[in-house]
Nucleic acid binder design. Structure first.
Length: 138
DNA sequence: GCCAACGTTGGC
DNA sequence: GCCAACGTTGGC
């Protein structure tokens, strides 16, 4: 199983809306790197749900429930999306400053390339964030 | 195929 | 709300 991080601005699509939606088609991604990461996802992979611009914290864990398929909001045929489902919130959200301050997380894509909206997370980073969030990593 | 101009993202 | 960083577009 692989680990990922997906970003959303909570004033556009928050964790609570994600939870309420159930199966949530992650459409609207228009960046090749992000798209390629989604194409690499498999059902059962896990993703942190991060609130960007507002909040600036990892708030929850989601699971890939459907691998990449055409984005229904795209008419060019170039873009793909996967489906997610909320698994659980973090017991304690992990804010960006805590991530930046943690030497074990210094190489996270979130720190190094803050603009990438769908990004890979290593298993070590996964466990560390879960630990900071007082949440069972499984 | 280069690169300047432009648009968008997202931390601050 | 600002603006740095980055990705994309389009003229040449």
């Amino acid at each position: 199983m692989a680990y990922w991080l997906i970003k959303s601005e909570p004033n556009k699509w928050s964790w609570d809306q994600h939870v309420a939606k159930g199966t949530d088609e992650w459409d609207g991604v228009r960046n090749f790197q992000a798209r390629n990461n989604m194409i690499a996802m498999r059902p059962g992979d896990r993703a942190f749900y991060y609130h960007s611009r507002e909040g600036l914290e990892v708030v929850g864990i989601s699971e890939v429930v459907a691998e990449a398929h055409p984005d229904s909001t795209d008419d060019t045929g170039k873009w793909s999306c996967v489906d997610f489902r909320a698994v659980k919130p973090l017991t304690r959200p992990v804010p960006m400053p805590a991530i930046k301050a943690d030497p074990e997380l210094a190489d996270m894509v979130l720190v190094k390339n803050s603009r990438l909206s769908v990004q890979p997370v290593t298993e070590a980073e996964w466990r560390r964030i879960c630990s900071l969030g007082e949440t069972d990593p499984d």
